[in-house]
Design a protein around this nucleic acid. Structure first.
Lengths: 243, 243
DNA sequence: GTTTGTGAACCACTTCACAGCC
DNA sequence: GGCTGTGAAGTGGTTCACAAAC
């Protein structure tokens, strides 16, 4: 098997924590500092574990988990070791136990109300997307500024006026905001969300937005993904031609 | 200004090139080996340059470009240095010139026909998404297996049967495939695309897929993004409570 | 015998800091 | 005096390889 490692998406806007006050423990929770790269892989392990559990498998090796997650076994072991020592040498990991630990670490045992801003093509698709619901993520509002779109039904929701954002965020306890507006509106919308108290933002608008350090920001940028693929595709073509 | 660096998405499934035959030049093109992390940022610089050019600005400093791209100036300079020495000390970079060089490097001077497999919520949204078109990426086909969806119009296209994939890929010279199917179909669809000759894949299905080394694979996974945000959000809550 | 957990070695990327050129 | 280009130092992440535990 070829080793096509390196999956995943790296984060943005992370505190980068002043070198002082590094690895503190909080209360009795151990709270090891988990590397960003590891955090980004935990959801992949989580999914692999869910599938494994569904098949009534009781224990799983790092080897097998690696295969399911598309990484190598050493990485799996090191990643999981940041959570604690949940494996048994000579045996592997107890699927149910590990599943629970990972879910807990990721916060999937709680509910995360999500609001979407922008009800165009993409916003509507996101609102209708199954596959979140699975664990804790619930779309509780879709906003738009365009009066023509207000009241339009999307799944169980209706599009609400952006001007209600503050109130709705408060009332429904929105924890995560998704930006699905045109690029030109993205920064303003972000600022409004942050002002309303939202501290986690997922940006789909094709533009750079900035937030204060206390806010987590990640982005998904279709055009960028395509351009990266184009780069490597072109590279391959060049290699074929020359060399 | 706080330094919220670290943007961007890292790749997947990259050759990792056998250590032998490293930095060869092809023909007369210099072809320095550009780090993956740099490649992932070039599209961001590209966008910043386009905006800058639109405002009739003639030269731009690494400082300014960094601001627009949401990174720091040292990174911009190092990144651009992989492409060549296109700046002028004491002055900055000529916007038009740099724009052209970056576009060329990314392969944005050519046309990239894209096919989408899956015409559900997400597939349809992707097909209708403006913001690709901008540079070279043209959706030329949308496929589905569901007979009920065939013939449905999406923008200027109609949904075509998946069984025609081979022929259509050949006839329209599809270079990039996007997977917007349920997870269960993603690996099979990928294999079909690869068999048909597609060498760049963008996977939106929430599952790990694998491809041979010669194929570039990137993924966009909404659920994973949300879970990563949830992790950090929970972390913040814990920090607020304890410590 | 098997498989984890983890120091140590390695590698990729980032940041620093300054010489070199305008 | 200003800004780039880049070696060198620093940081974070990956892989190796093996002792420890079953």
């Amino acid at each position: 098997m070829p080793d096509f490692e390196k999956s995943l998406t790296k984060s943005v806007a992370f505190p980068r924590q002043s070198p002082v006050e590094e690895s503190l423990s909080v209360g009795d929770a151990p709270l090891r500092r988990i590397p960003e790269a590891t955090v980004a892989r935990l959801p992949v392990y989580y999914r692999a574990l869910v599938e494994t559990a569904e098949q009534q498998v009781v224990t799983v090796s790092s080897e097998r988990l690696a295969e399911l997650a598309g990484v190598n076994a050493a990485k799996v072991r090191k990643d999981l070791s940041y959570l604690g020592s949940y494996g048994t040498r000579g045996v592997g990991y107890d699927v149910e136990h590990l599943l629970h630990e990972v879910a807990h670490e990721l916060g999937l045992t709680q509910d995360w109300p999500v609001a979407i801003v922008g009800s165009g093509n993409l916003g509507a698709a996101l609102a209708g997307y199954k596959g979140f619901g699975a664990r804790g993520f619930r779309i509780v509002a879709v906003f738009d500024v365009d009066p023509a779109r207000l009241g339009r039904r999307i799944g169980e929701l209706e599009v609400e006026p952006f001007s209600d954002l503050d109130r709705v965020v408060r009332e429904r306890g929105v924890a995560i905001g998704m930006i699905a507006t045109p690029a030109s509106a993205a920064q303003d919308v972000t600022d409004r969300l942050v002002d309303a108290g939202v501290r986690s933002i997922l940006n789909f608008a094709p533009t750079v937005i900035t937030v204060e350090d206390s806010v987590s920001l990640r982005k998904v940028d279709l055009a960028i993904e395509l351009q990266i693929l184009a780069f490597y595709q072109q590279q391959k073509a060049a290699r074929r031609a020359g060399a």
